[in-house]
Design a protein around this nucleic acid. Structure first.
Lengths: 204, 204
DNA sequence: CTTATTTGGAAACGATCATTCCCTAATTGG
DNA sequence: CCAATTAGGGAATGATCGTTTCCAAATAAG
């Protein structure tokens, strides 16, 4: 008796010939660089290597493509960050790793390309409730992670007890989002990482 | 003998019936909320109270309108900031006033509306050299102002000599740009100002 | 083998985009 | 008063937008 490897039975009909996540990864680049309104379906067709028909078979409309990109972007980035944080030896090291993780993304070509979450916040949050909810959830998650790491550091002795975990976490969140803005025009590695060093002095 | 009050002689032809700066101020609101690509000429017509013909008499094209908005936005904001900084009693007070100035703009309705400089950096900097140059000049100016205030504070004794003026200025710049990003989705006054308080502890 | 279902691909659609044109109105200079 | 110049207003333009439609191709179920 053969064992079905796939989790779900293949549905009736012609099977999709492209990988959704691969296509989304290419769309993420385009949306990050050009923004939502600056990206046309033609841009997406070209980047994803699909025809308009196939695009609209796989997604309801442009907005749905964008939201799927946002979700995939966050999923991938969060997984990478979690991997990095798993290596942290203590609270302070965790904060440092998180700041470095952001600084790596905010400088050079990646900095020029931009962060999809920051772009979404700036371009869409005010009139697009679904986008705003996603941005807010993303920011909350990072703020909470910073706060948890600070508390952990205060308990393991690597971070001074004289700072307020929630307010300091909020400031660190501001710093990393700001690095993304500055990275759009002056993404030098040196300047980006000097900000990380100064931010770390808050924990002394 | 009558004295001509105007600085320049009125040029031949029908005089313009609207005030350019007033029109730009309304356009600034629209561009801040909707972004460059999200704003149509129709949006601008409506907000500025002009017809397409008049718009294109006064400006070369949409891009020129946008750049004029950016320049006016910076001019107005810089004038307000300079006014605030003139009241500073010492270096530390100057830094505090500058942070508060930003925090006032980044929370509440103004935070939701957004900052035109941040919006331009995120949406346009990568492909629009003229916009990128303006953003960079704006950021440089603020970074330099922060640095000058820090040096002044170190000389007048209000700021510790143990911090590096340039790196700390860069961090403060990151913080205020980040506040603009966070202000798009969670613009509470309390959270915004708590970040200012934490940032000020860097100067101790 | 037939039917139902889904995708791929390309042409076609109406709407909206930024921009221009054309006519009238208002001003300066002669 | 006349010519030149510029602005106001609104219709018209061609291009591009996001989306739909239509048909052939590929699969599963019966």
């Amino acid at each position: 008796m053969a064992i079905d490897i796939s989790l779900a039975a293949r549905p009736a009909g012609r099977p999709r010939e492209f990988d959704i996540d691969e296509a989304l990864d290419r769309a993420i680049t385009v949306f990050s660089e050009r923004g939502y309104h600056g990206t046309s379906i033609s841009d997406l067709r070209e980047a994803m290597g699909l025809t308009a028909g196939s695009l609209y078979k796989a997604f309801k409309d442009k907005h749905a493509i964008f939201l799927a990109c946002f979700d995939r972007y966050k999923q991938v980035r969060n997984a990478l960050l979690d991997e990095e944080l798993a290596k942290a030896s203590n609270g302070r090291d965790g904060v440092r790793r998180m700041l470095v993780f952001y600084a790596e993304g905010a400088h050079g070509d990646g900095g020029r390309r931009g962060c999809l979450a920051v772009g979404t916040a700036v371009e869409l949050a005010i009139f697009d409730d679904e986008a705003a909810r996603r941005v807010e959830r993303s920011m909350d998650r990072f703020e909470t992670t910073f706060e948890t790491l600070i508390r952990r550091g205060q308990e393991d002795g690597s971070i001074t007890r004289s700072i307020q975990p929630n307010a300091t976490a909020r400031l660190l969140l501001s710093v990393v989002q700001g690095l993304r803005v500055l990275g759009k025009t002056s993404p030098s590695r040196e300047q980006t990482f000097s900000v990380v060093d100064v931010a770390m002095t808050l924990l002394d």
